[in-house]
Nucleic acid binder design. Structure first.
Lengths: 212, 212
DNA sequence: AATCCTGTCGACCGGGGTGGTCAACAGTAA
DNA sequence: TTACTGTTGACCACCCCGGTCGACAGGATT
């Protein structure tokens, strides 16, 4: 592993990107080290020289990705906003920026989370669980419940709002799939997103309390 | 193919189930005919004797599944209900019953739809597109727009409600994954579902118009 | 100039799985 | 006996897998 860290940034990133993409697309078992080295532009031997084995590589990527998310996403969230929907708007923006910085990490963690098929090294498992816990707190902690209508169960309202936001994000993702990220002007999507958020406020918040 | 249809129902069903499950779980490319024949309890040769090739089998399953959905799901939807949320409640119930009747068909169509990687025979492609069109109409046609609040864009409200329902269904699916379907008492989940629907009505419909 | 060290490559290994074929055989009908 | 229909699973040629290792390039050390 120290071998790998001695490489220049650029080469490291190229290898990481290739590996993250491969695992994101195929999961652990069906990912191919052959495709990784071809995509990364290195000889087969080097991958094992750097990382030892496929599994070691996978764990390295998991830890790398978890650290990335904490540093570039979680740590940038402003927890002083107590308006639930405003907070979700804020987290969406920060997440988007982090995603733009390294798309592969998020794709990798996506399939990492839903194919939790094998046992990770304990310290990585712990990091993973800590991340889930932090992610949850980030969304629900110190939320001003008094903004919500009195005639609906707030816990259920939370969920409905989150599902709505996930639904919108999935729709956009699906609509833009295959386009090259940099070529897209996201502003209209953000505007549309804000319109949905306004509707959610109208629907789930008390009448008078819609400040701004 | 006529060979296959000469078999007794039970054997046919066992083979169909095995094949649907295999394709649902692994997609076309990575599905294994060896696993299918083992699961179905037949010799390797028979699969090719019945269906000719892996691809022919896949197309047969696609057509079979599309027909199943039209007959057991779409054709049972009552289109006279004009309340959007009530209609979604109704379609959810009918879909659930159809799913209970043949879970594999729905799982197969799930991965079939999102891995549309290769070109189907034209008549199947047509059927597929017709199904999508009908499915859309089933939800949006003849809906009473006057029930919705005046201060929100109805098209956006449609989407928010659908995303909410999909979110709930995914959550339940995820929570119950691995359990054996028949052993589950679904009643409490339906009740919870109805509670969510009531909240959606309170939120997106006009104040006075919540009949029932 | 000789030796050593580090990094790098890719041919190669044994193993496993692939879709598809086919000789062999069982059972029934002619 | 012969002919036909179903049925089996060993077998085929092929492909890809994770991992190894001999060969070599080039710089530093002696």
């Amino acid at each position: 592993m120290e071998k790998f860290k001695g490489l220049d940034e650029e080469k490291q990133q190229k290898i990481l990107d290739a590996a993250l993409m491969e695992f994101a697309e195929h999961g652990y078992e069906k990912a191919s080290t052959n495709r990784i080295v071809k995509e990364a532009g290195i000889g087969k031997g080097m991958l094992f020289y750097y990382f030892g084995s496929k599994k070691d590589l996978y764990e390295f990527l998991a830890e790398y990705s978890l650290d990335f998310v904490v540093e570039k996403y979680f740590s940038r969230i402003n927890m002083t906003e107590t308006d639930f929907i405003e907070r979700l708007k804020h987290t969406s923006q920060v997440k988007f920026e982090a995603q733009r910085e390294n798309k592969n990490v998020f794709n990798f963690l996506g399939t990492f989370m839903l194919t939790a098929d094998f046992k990770l090294a304990p310290h990585i498992q712990e990091k993973y669980e800590a991340m889930q816990k932090t992610g949850n707190a980030m969304i629900y902690e110190d939320v001003d419940l008094s903004l919500f209508r009195d005639d609906v169960d707030v816990q259920k309202a939370f969920k409905l709002i989150r599902w709505s936001i996930e639904g919108y994000q999935n729709e956009i993702l699906h609509k833009l799939q295959g386009q090259s990220m940099v070529s897209i002007d996201f502003d209209p999507y953000w505007e549309e997103f804000y319109e949905y958020l306004e509707i959610l406020k109208k629907s789930f918040y008390k009448k008078g309390e819609r400040n701004r």
